[in-house]
Amino acid sequence: MIECRNISKIYRNGDNETVALDGASFSVRDGEFLAIMGPSGSGKSTLMNVLGLLDSPSSGTYFLDGRDVSVLSEDELAEIRIRKIGFVFQSFNLLPRTSVMRNVMLPLIYEGVPHARRSELAEEALRAVEFPESRWNHLSNQLSGGQMQRVAIARALVNAPSLILADEPTGNLDTKTGELVMAAFRKLNLEKGHTVILITHEHDIARYADRIITVRDGRIVSDFPNRDVRSA
C-alpha cells in the first residue's frame, strides 16, 4: 500500500540546510502494524508528515496505493487524507468544549457525509474503541487522557481509512492507560485490518508492532520483523 523510494527532506533556513530525511526507502503492505522508532530529531516526525501527506518530500517518490502523490496539489492531498488516512496525535487535539460525538463526526463533515449516516458511523467507531456509551455526549474537556485518546482514535477511524498514522499516541498517558490505547490499535489491526503506522521513541510501545523500523539522522538504520510481539 505504501512504497517510498529514496525519500529526502531538506529544510532550508537562509543558508542553513537541515537534512531531516536522507534517502529513506521502504514499503508497507496492507494490514501491517508498523512501528517507526528513533530518538527525537531522528526525522521520524518528518517521515510521518510525509507519509500522512501533510508535507511533501524534497526528492524521491512516494506511492500510496500505487499512485505517485508527490505531484498532487494541496486540495488533492486533502481529498486523499480525508478518504484514506486517519491521524492520532500525542496531544489528542480534540475540539475543546465540544461533545464526544461531534468530535468523532468532524472528518465526516468535511467529507460531506449526510447527517443521518454520520451518527451511525460515529457510534460504530466509538464502539470499536470501546468508549463507554454513557459518555458519548460529554464534552471533550470532561474526559481523562485515556478517554480523550480513545475519542481521537475513534475520530481517526470514522471515515474507514485504510491507513492509521499514530504519532506518539501514548506520549501523554501513564503506562497503564498507554497499554489500553495500544491494545485498541492492536485490535483494530487484527480485527478490522487497518494498516497502522506507529511513531514512537519508546521501545516498550514499539513492541506491539509486527515490524519495527529504526530511524537515525534521517536514515533507516534497521528494518526487521518483531519476533516478540507484545500481546494486549
Binding site: 501533510l54 487524507r81 487535539n93
Partner: peptide
C-alpha cells in the same frame, strides 16, 4: 491555530 491545523490534517481544504 491548533484546531485549524487538526481540521486541515483530517482533510479540510483551504477553502473549507
Amino acid at each position: 491555530t491548533r484546531e485549524i491545523g487538526l481540521r486541515k490534517a483530517i482533510g479540510a481544504k483551504g477553502r473549507d
